[in-house]
Simulated scan of single mutants.
Amino acid sequence: MSSEGWPPGHEKLVLEETDSTMMEAQRRAPSLGSPTWILAHRQTAGRGRRGRAWTDPAGNFAATLIQRMDEPPAKLALRSFVAALALRDALVELTHLPDAFALKWPNDVLLNGGKLSGILLESPGAGVLAIGIGVNLRASPEPEPGAAFPPVNLRSETGITLGPEQLLDSLAPAFARWDTRLRTYGFGPIRTAFLNGVARLGQPLIARTLTEEFRGTFETIDESGSLVLVTPEGRRAIPAADIFFP
């Protein structure tokens, strides 16, 4: 467990099996009291961004943090950066391999250049935020056609085997630490830390939205969390997109 211990005031629910931890969080939202981490050892209907299926082989990590938050949607969305920073910290703490992990805007953690994790934010009710996190600890799903990054898993890439509860016990205090920084100091320190660990800064990127494709140089992340590309048509701030490395 992290030296910081479990964050005060947070509950932990460990399930052997559920459809998805996000759906479990949605069911519990109406009666939610304290912030709660929900971990499942097996998901039967996991999902990712834009409704994509999230394959969850045995031994991988699947958890959702659900909590009440009285903040505007734009600030709630910044928790995607908080989650990615916390996950990287937890993985570095447990593996002692700081150079193996990189961040990909807006919220992925890469391992040796491959996709290790997925992070999904949803609001299952007014004033409630659910943050779902999946990590390939022991097995990788089959790559999707046209996937930007091949899925990788921690055990194959590093030879290190972590248990889901072991990761959760480091992730929860790491998330609480970064979340406190966001609440106290705003997005500035989060943005700086993310830029310090993000992949391909200053290099070419392709950003694809549902309707457009932008090609340019990854200049920065702005104060709202948008990706800033320098394109032949000028600087473009892109709030949401799928990222590809040429």
Rank of each mutant, 00 (worst) to 15 (best):
L39S: 09
N60D: 15
F175L: 06
Q166P: 02
R177S: 14
L32M: 05
P189E: 05
L227G: 02
S117K: 02
K12P: 00
E24Y: 10
V128M: 04
L110K: 14
R208M: 12
A174Q: 09
P8F: 01
N196V: 00
A174S: 14
V135A: 11
Q166E: 15
R42F: 04
T180G: 15
H96W: 06
S156T: 13
N112V: 00
R183L: 11
P124M: 10
A77D: 08
T55G: 02
D99N: 08
D89I: 00
L32G: 05
L111Y: 02
R235N: 01
Q67G: 04
L205R: 10
P239H: 13
W178C: 12
S226C: 08
P246W: 06
G163D: 15
N60I: 13
T184H: 08
P145S: 11
T217K: 13
D19M: 01
L121T: 06
A172T: 12
R49E: 09
P143M: 04
W54R: 10
A62L: 01
E11W: 02
D89T: 13
Y185K: 13
G113S: 10
E213L: 08
S3T: 14
D56P: 05
I243M: 04
P30L: 08
L65F: 08
W54T: 09
T192I: 02
L87C: 07
T21Y: 03
G5Y: 10
P204I: 13
S3L: 15
E93T: 04
H41G: 11
F194W: 11
A53C: 01
Y185A: 14
A174W: 04
L205K: 09
S224P: 00
P72R: 09
K12S: 05
I243S: 08
S34Y: 04
A199I: 09
E122P: 06
N196A: 14
G132H: 02
G146N: 01
V135Y: 04
R42A: 11
L162M: 09
R236N: 01
L111N: 06
V230T: 11
G197N: 12
A45G: 13
D169L: 13
P98H: 06
P73R: 15
Q166Y: 12
S123L: 03
G225W: 06
E219F: 01
L210G: 13
M1F: 01
T36Q: 10
S3A: 15
L137K: 01
T211F: 03
W6P: 14
F245W: 14
E165W: 12
R181W: 14
L65V: 01
L154D: 11
L227H: 06
P8M: 02
T21N: 03
E4K: 15
R235P: 00
T184P: 03
G163T: 14
R215N: 13
I119A: 01
A174M: 08
T158K: 08
A172G: 13
P141L: 12
Y185I: 00
L103A: 11
E16H: 05
V128Y: 03
S2D: 02
A193F: 13
I243R: 15
S80M: 03
E165P: 03
L227A: 07
D19N: 01
D108A: 14
S117Y: 02
F187L: 11
A25L: 07
G46E: 02
D89H: 12
V152P: 03
V198G: 06
E4R: 15
G51K: 10
D222I: 02
P189Y: 11
L116S: 09
P246K: 03
L195V: 02
A84Y: 00
R208W: 05
